[in-house]
């Protein structure tokens, strides 16, 4: 099990990426090949507005943070709702109070070695482990902690 610890494995739910796609892109996909569930998610997401939308980004962020092939943040951090956390980094709690400016969180995720050259936290943005949008979603999630 733990041998997979840092190697990617694909646990992405089929609908997850589609949910973020703009509707036009979804329309241009052959509808027969879009799984019904994913389509339902996509339409659902498009209908969401305001706070509901932010909530969905945060839950998407949580998935990305916990996914071993993506953020895999639990390798090092205790995070509410996650199993088998490591102890290398500090517990991620009370983040909104500690980092009221989301730019600071984006920077930490992008490349923490700029703040602390000795850190072992991977430079998720710089090394393209996560895309800008994925980092955004994870930051949304962090702000709920």
């Amino acid at each position: 099990m733990a041998f997979l610890l840092l190697t990617p494995y694909n646990s992405k739910a089929a609908g997850m990426n589609l949910r973020k796609m703009p509707l036009t892109e979804i329309r241009s996909t052959n509808p027969v090949r879009v799984p019904a569930l994913a389509l339902a998610f996509a339409i659902g997401a498009a209908l969401l507005t305001g706070p509901a939308r932010a909530q969905s980004a945060a839950s998407e962020g949580q998935k990305l943070a916990f996914d071993r092939g993506k953020g895999n943040c639990l390798t090092c951090h205790v995070i509410k709702g996650g199993d088998l956390p490591g102890s290398i980094g500090p517990e991620l709690a009370d983040i909104k109070r500690k980092y009221p400016d989301r730019k600071d969180l984006v920077a930490i995720l992008n490349d923490e070695t700029r703040r602390n050259p000795q850190t072992v936290m991977p430079p998720f943005g710089r090394n393209r482990i996560l895309t800008e949008q994925e980092i955004d979603a994870i930051v949304d999630f962090l702000q709920t902690l």
Binding site: M1, A2, L5, L74, T75, C76, L84, P85, G86, S87, I88, Q118, V120
Partner: peptide, 13 residues
């Protein structure tokens, strides 16, 4: 891992 973090858990290890 082996100088900065011995004794720490990386996931469950």
């Amino acid at each position: 891992c082996h100088v900065q973090n011995p004794g720490e858990r990386i996931r469950a290890e």
